[in-house]
Design a protein around this nucleic acid. Structure first.
Lengths: 136, 136
DNA sequence: CAGGATCCGGAGCGATACTG
DNA sequence: CAGTATCGCTCCGGATCCTG
């Protein structure tokens, strides 16, 4: 991205009715930041896992196959920052911390869950597509 | 991930009715691969852009604010490989190549678009959540 | 059990230059 | 216009150790 290139995709792009129409395509839009947080490699899976209800740290680590403690912790912080989940420290010993979706988190995670369901139901199509593409 | 840790999250996890129930949480599941391809930083935005109809390379580059040519090209190949979009080279001069969603791509992209709409409509909530989190 | 701190290799990614 | 090739750097992310 050269500095002299005029960027006109920041504010109102396709619909210029409002003064500042939020636009995921725009780099500086708040929705884009939220979108990138949600579509993170691990964050999305964490959100989906929480659709079934609150989870503890260890539960999530076991549920999301392959995630390291570091990345799980990092993902949870990111999602908490975006207001998609809440962290509840019971302050007991041994420690117990629960992660649960906020109302907005429920809305978002539900859609991710639905998306994942579509993918799970069409696994054969993906296998075929990959084989086709790799074959030639 | 230690090697001796028994991983039992590969196949049937929460529902063990079928022989091999696809599971996004499982590392080796085809749906997980598709999910990671879809939720890539740029791939998701490309898919959303294509909901409005076929686009040329340059159009996409201008539409998806901040993407480099390299990453756009790479993202398009990945999505084509997953069978979510088709590439049509008209073979003319100057060259013209169109990218369009497959039926499966329409299904997936539509859901991403809906998700993005939610985020765009709740931008203020994210701003507030971030301010709250950063403040303390 | 919940996670912070640190090290470090490799993947991700942008910038630039070049081709048909 | 539609890409590919190459360089170089950032930072993702896993492994490991440590604490309350």
């Amino acid at each position: 991205m050269t500095a002299d290139a005029p960027i006109t995709n920041v504010g109102a792009d396709d619909r210029l009715d409002g003064p500042f129409e939020p636009n995921v395509f725009a780099r500086d839009c708040g929705s884009r930041a939220a979108f990138e947080a949600i579509t993170g490699r691990w964050t999305s899976l964490v959100l989906i896992a929480l659709v079934e209800g609150p989870h503890r740290f260890g539960e999530l680590r076991r549920r999301v196959d392959g995630v390291s403690e570091k990345m799980l912790s990092q993902s949870l912080h990111a999602l908490e920052r975006e207001g998609l989940l809440t962290r509840t420290d019971h302050g007991t010993l041994p420690p117990r911390v629960d992660y649960a979706l906020t109302p907005l988190g429920v809305e978002v995670a539900g859609r991710l869950r639905a998306l994942a369901d579509v993918l799970q139901d069409t696994v054969p199509l993906f296998e075929a597509a990959r084989a086709e593409y790799d074959g030639q």
